[in-house]
Amino acid sequence: MSRAEAPPEPPEGLAALQEAFGEAIATPLLIGGPETLIQVDRYPEPALRAVSGHGGRSGPERLMTYNKQYWFRLLTVMQEELPLLRHLMGLTAFNQMVTDYLDAHPSRSQLLQHLSDDLEGFLAGSERWGRPAWRQAARLERHYIRAFDAAALPALDPAALPPEVAAGLLAAPLRLQPHWALFEEGWDLLSWRRRVKGDADDAIAVTLTAQPGRWAIYRSGRVQAEALTVAQLRLLERLAAGLSLQAACDGLAEVLDPEGMAEVGAGIQSWFARWVALGWFAAP
């Protein structure tokens, strides 16, 4: 049997039962009051009819176990994956936000690390949850999540390149590693993320300071961040867009002031050497 053959047809009613059951267990819990409430009155009727009671527990009561487990599991994962957002919002508000998010954007992947894929877009479209600092924090968290287990291509080592390839390096498009990303912030978000990462008990109170920052997020062993100047950021943006080093530098005058251009002139060689040493570029 190969995948080319037609898949088996499910028994009649199975798909409908599972969709109703799924809708029931994904019914949002009401968070924020003195206790968390289960909205069993929202469970679809087909799910309620399908399940049996036992041992003093009715069918709906037994469904509630799965409803609670569903949200407990996903909230726990998001609390662990998004420590900065959790601290910025406070746990109760964070749990409410995640509930609203996953209700609107249910998981479409077998892998839990994709749960927050659509979070930044959700926050951007939400009047309640769309504060700019929270949206930037979501973007930063996403970079960290992606960097953790993204592929790592063989790193560029100019000294190991054949002479003819090395000679053409300046004019050839450079490939940045799949785990690498640029991040700009309007507040000291990255600094706070470093501090709250291990604070599972939410003991640390975050007070943001308006402070522009520019970073490259990458993985070398663990996920790390390198602070960038404006000039470095603009150069890396152009490299990430697929330009060669030469072409990237040539167009910088359009986006940098004379002071920035001077900085590039003075620093480009040492910058590139450092970025290569950090493993940001993939071998051609």
Partner: peptide
């Protein structure tokens, strides 16, 4: 999974 959604249970 059902209806394109994953329930992670």
């Amino acid at each position: 999974q059902a209806g394109g959604r994953h329930y992670h249970d």
